[in-house]
Design a protein around this nucleic acid. Sequence first.
RNA 1: GUGGGUAUAGUUCAGUGGUUAGAGCGCCAGAUUGUGGCUCUGGAUAUCGUGGGUUCGACUCCCACUACCCACCCCA
Length: 420
Amino acid sequence: MLTQAPKGTRDMLPQDAHIWQTIEGIMRRRAALAGYREVRTPVFEHTELFLRGVGDTTDIVQKEMYTFKDKGDRSITLKPEGTAGAVRALIENHLFADTLPCKMYYLNTPVFRYEKPQAGRLREHHQFGMECFGGKSPVVEAELISTLLGILGDLGLKGLSVNINSIGCPNCRPKYHAALKEYLSGHVNELCEDCRERLDRNPLRVLDCKVPTCKELVKDAPSMLDMLCDDCRTHFDQLQKLLTARGIPFKVDTHIVRGLDYYTKTVFEVMVSRGREGLALCGGGRYDGLVEQLGGPATCAAGFGIGTERIIMELENQGVVLPQPPVCDVYVANLGEEARETSFLLCQQLREAGVKAEEDVCCRSLKAQFKYADKIAARFIALVGGDELARGVVKLRNLSTREETEIPCENAAESIAAML
RNA sequence: GUGGGUAUAGUUCAGUGGUUAGAGCGCCAGAUUGUGGCUCUGGAUAUCGUGGGUUCGACUCCCACUACCCACCCCA
């Protein structure tokens, strides 16, 4: 127990750091290109924020939150998704009163859900997400999807599919709810147990059911798309035009409803093929009512969240290897105690000159030092030895060409830095 | 939350109801005494997941727990 990480958590180890950093670099760059700036919000929030924000009929809130009382008897919850915190920060800091739109992204914020872990599903995972407040045009969703695909494309991922849907707004959704309920009520006996319960609480979720009999039934159910109000209809049509104009292939899937209650109009997801159903890499949509619902002024908004562990899993699946930058430019090898001080100083000077430099810290033989330098793929070895010390030089060996040159000790670090 | 599988060195995996539990890779050290990647030689490292039980005896059989993997549910 002592030396075992809690169930469903994973360490990010030094040998994998470059993978995360590469991904993060691409995310930062793409988000910045679209005018988004980073936001960081607390890992925990008052539980009430998620109850009101995420929705208390959702699975996330009903059974997956990490909720506890703190010493001040406040109910605290580790964030189960990224949007609620961003919205809270927007409202609390009055960002809505500033120039709109307000565009922000969060970079690999930890997200916690009490679930049964398996491949691609953890209790703590990390999400990158983008949120845009104050933009009512479908250009917002189009730019989010485009940026997202840009990130995944930069990483070298292929075979992704974009599914979009519209689930209407407070004007038209109630009518659809009623129509759907009426249709399903006529077939209660054919529904699975879960769906009978969903019928009352959140009939939209029935559309999402994976039970074959429910899926069959849902095929003939009325479609939200047929009942959208003019505003929602136009919005959805425009979004499709924008995506098409951008050359982004997408599929309209009327069965996407998403697991969060706050969405209005557009919902979308990016899937990778996995088994029959595929695996969601990313989910998002428009949530025009959430800011107001949480106590801010009516502010339209849209955003998405994407799981970084799933991106990494898919990179591995597709055999995409992210290049690892050299760990060491120059390995400073020394020949025992009399050379230690000199090699230490040379190593320090190299670092000051911006050169990635390492030296022996294990008191190993010269041969072992060479082996180590080779293993870490150092480009050069600077040898500080008896002969060289006496002659006031450092021997510089190129590990790939095996060429050796001698550099005067005077300004050795600067000379070496200049050669790289 | 439901169902199934797995658990042996750092790692990937062998193994048998009975004396000192093995291999590949990795790690460390040597191969005429100041030089890496190849080769050769040697070495270290395992309370055989944890806790019970059956047995003269359990790494091997049984139970529980824990973790991981797969399918479902849900999602990122």
